[in-house]
Amino acid sequence: MANTPQSKKRARQSEKRFAVNKARRSRIRTFIRKVEEAIASGDQAAAQEALKVAQPELMRGVTKGVFHKNTASRKMSRLAARVKAVGA
């Protein structure tokens, strides 16, 4: 357990940060799930629309430090390829 005032404060800040990051991660996963559900339903228009909404959310996660840039890019790339394949 933290002993010094500084370490106690850092522990409090860490808990707050964890909660905020957890909420952000959850929100991003929800947007990704909506894209995957649209892909599963076979509706390419809905999937493309969901992807358009999910992309800025993913990149916002990068700027906020929740995801690494390459991770978000990889997720977007794979989702886009799957959306494209729905129409084919």
Rank of each mutant, 00 (worst) to 15 (best):
G65K: 02
S77N: 12
K69N: 13
E37A: 11
F67L: 14
E15T: 12
F18Q: 13
F18G: 11
Q48D: 12
Q55Y: 15
V53H: 07
A88V: 12
E49Q: 14
Q55T: 15
K52E: 06
D43A: 10
E37R: 11
R24H: 05
E49M: 09
A81G: 11
R25A: 13
Q48G: 15
K16V: 08
A50H: 02
H68K: 15
N21A: 04
V83P: 00
A54W: 06
Q6Y: 08
S14W: 12
A54Y: 08
L51G: 03
R82L: 03
I28L: 01
A81N: 10
E49N: 12
A47G: 04
S7C: 07
G42A: 02
K34W: 00
H68V: 15
F67C: 04
A85C: 01
K9Y: 14
N21D: 12
T63A: 13
A85F: 04
K64D: 09
G42T: 02
P56I: 00
E49G: 10
V83K: 00
D43L: 08
N21M: 07
Q13S: 08
V83S: 00
Q44W: 06
A85G: 04
T63K: 15
A88F: 11
A38I: 00
L51K: 05
K52P: 00
I32M: 07
R74F: 06
F18R: 15
R27M: 08
R78P: 06
A45N: 09
I32F: 04
R74Q: 09
S26Q: 12
G65I: 01
I39V: 04
G61V: 10
A80L: 01
A2D: 02
